[in-house]
């Protein structure tokens, strides 16, 4: 079982890296791409036989308390069973 945690700056926080990527894409002619947000992805591999409910609780806690700085970032989790 794997969890993919995506962490990105909150929508209300200016993302200069995303802006720079968007500007580069625009220069390359990709005019349809109006906005880019850059973040990071953590791939968490859980031991076989881990209780799914417990795993979800644990991964959510890790995402909230360690992988994200709640002042500026937010996260989402995708599961691959």
């Amino acid at each position: 079982m794997k969890a993919f945690v995506t962490v990105a700056l909150k929508k209300t926080v200016l993302d200069p890296q995303g802006k720079a990527v968007q500007a580069a894409l625009a220069k390359l002619g990709h005019a349809a791409i109006r906005d880019v947000r850059q973040g990071k992805c953590f791939e968490l591999d859980l031991a076989a036989g881990t209780n799914p409910a417990a795993a979800r609780t644990e991964v959510e806690r890790v995402a909230r308390e360690v992988l994200t700085n709640p002042v500026i970032e937010e996260f989402s989790i995708r599961w691959d069973d």
Binding site: L9, V13, P16, Q17, V71
Partner: peptide
Amino acid sequence: LCECGLLPGALMRNAGL
């Protein structure tokens, strides 16, 4: 100090990158 909560706020990437 900001990460451990002794001071409020956060330090982000410089605006000029």
